[in-house]
Design a binder for these strands. Structure first.
Lengths: 157, 157
DNA sequence: GAAAGGATTGCAAACCACTTGCATTCCCAC
DNA sequence: GTGGGAATGCAAGTGGTTTGCAATCCTTTC
C-alpha cells in the first residue's frame, strides 16, 4: 500500500519565502511544487555545505520520503539548476543550491579525518578561467576546486 | 581453485626502470613488489589521464588479475602516495601517480561532451594553499582543481 | 632444504550508492 | 466527476567497491 508524504496533501501551504531562482522556477510552474521538492530545497538552504541524499533524507525528518523519490527529485532539481558534486572523495554525490543562485561562487576546505567543511568566500579563478578558455578554444567553461587537509581538532598532539 | 597471476612467479624480473618515488619505495622494501602492483604502476605511468580500476584491469592485458586484487592494491598503493580521485562526476574512482612524484603538479581541462582531457602544466595554488592552512589551522593540506567546458571539436556550428 | 608464519591472491558473496519497473496515488484540465 | 500525465512508494536490479575465506606465495628460521 503506498502512502503519500504526510505534507503532500496541501503542498502550496508550504511556500514561505523565496529560496533562490529555483524556487521562482517552481512558482512560475516550470517545475511542479511537491512537498518533497519544497522540503528538499528548504533543507539545502538551511545547510551551508553540500549534502548527500541520505543526509537530505534524514534532514527531511517528518517529511520523510522514499530514498528513490529523493534521488529522482535530485535529478529533476538538477535540471533546474541544483548543483550535483562528486568531488568530496567518498563516492557519494552531494548537492547544493547553485552558486549562481543567490550567494557568490565559493569553494571548500575539507578535513580528511572528520569531514568538517569550511566554506571559502570568494573565487579568484574566473579571470584565469577565461584565459584558459581562450587558449584552448573551450566554451561554457566552469571549474571545481577543493582543498583538503587535517583540521586543528583532528591534528595529533 | 585459485591461481596466481601469470607473471607472479618471478616478480623481480619485471623491474625495468624507475617510475617514481613509489617504485623506489617498492624497491626499498617498504612495500612488497608483486607483479600486479608493478604492472599497475606501469599502466599508470603510460597513461596521461587518471584511470578507473576497470580501465587499469583492461590495460593489464595478459597480466590480468582479479578485480578485487586490483582494488586492494589501489588501496595499498594509495597509502604509498598514489592519488585516488572521485571528482570526474560518474561515481567511479580514478587513479594517477602522485603529482609530487616525478612530474610537476598539474590539473585538467575536461570536455563535458567527449570527455577529452587536456593537462594543464603548472599550478599557482601552492602559495594560496599555504595561506589557507595558516588561516584555518589546517595541516597536510592539498587540493584538487578541475576545469570543465566544451572543446573546439564538440562546439556546435 | 623443509617447516612456519605472514602477506597476497582468487573467488564468491556482501555492501552501498544509485536507478528502474510497476502499480498506486495525486493533481490539474476539461 | 472523469481522464491522463506526473509523482510516489516499494521492491528488485545495476555497478562500483569491499570483505571473508581458503589456497598460494614468499621470506625467515632452523
Amino acid at each position: 500500500m503506498s502512502r503519500p508524504c504526510p505534507q503532500h496533501q496541501h503542498p502550496h501551504r508550504l511556500i514561505q519565502q523565496p529560496l533562490s531562482d529555483l524556487t521562482d522556477k517552481l512558482r512560475r510552474g516550470e517545475l511542479k511544487i511537491t512537498a518533497p521538492r519544497q522540503a528538499i530545497l528548504e533543507v539545502l538552504r538551511k545547510h551551508a555545505s553540500p549534502l548527500t541524499t541520505k543526509e537530505i533524507r534524514r534532514a527531511l525528518g517528518k517529511a520523510d520520503c522514499d530514498l528513490a523519490t529523493v534521488y529522482r527529485n535530485m535529478h529533476t532539481l538538477e535540471r533546474m539548476g541544483l548543483v550535483r558534486r562528486h568531488d568530496f572523495g567518498d563516492g557519494a554525490a552531494r548537492f547544493e543550491l547553485s552558486p549562481d543562485e543567490g550567494d557568490a561562487h565559493h569553494h571548500h576546505l575539507v578535513c580528511t579525518r572528520c569531514s568538517k567543511v569550511i566554506e571559502l568566500d570568494d573565487c579568484f579563478l574566473d579571470r584565469f578561467q577565461e584565459e584558459l578558455a581562450r587558449r584552448h578554444g573551450f566554451s561554457g567553461i566552469s571549474h571545481r576546486m577543493e582543498f583538503f587537509g587535517i583540521c586543528p581538532t583532528c591534528q595529533p598532539g
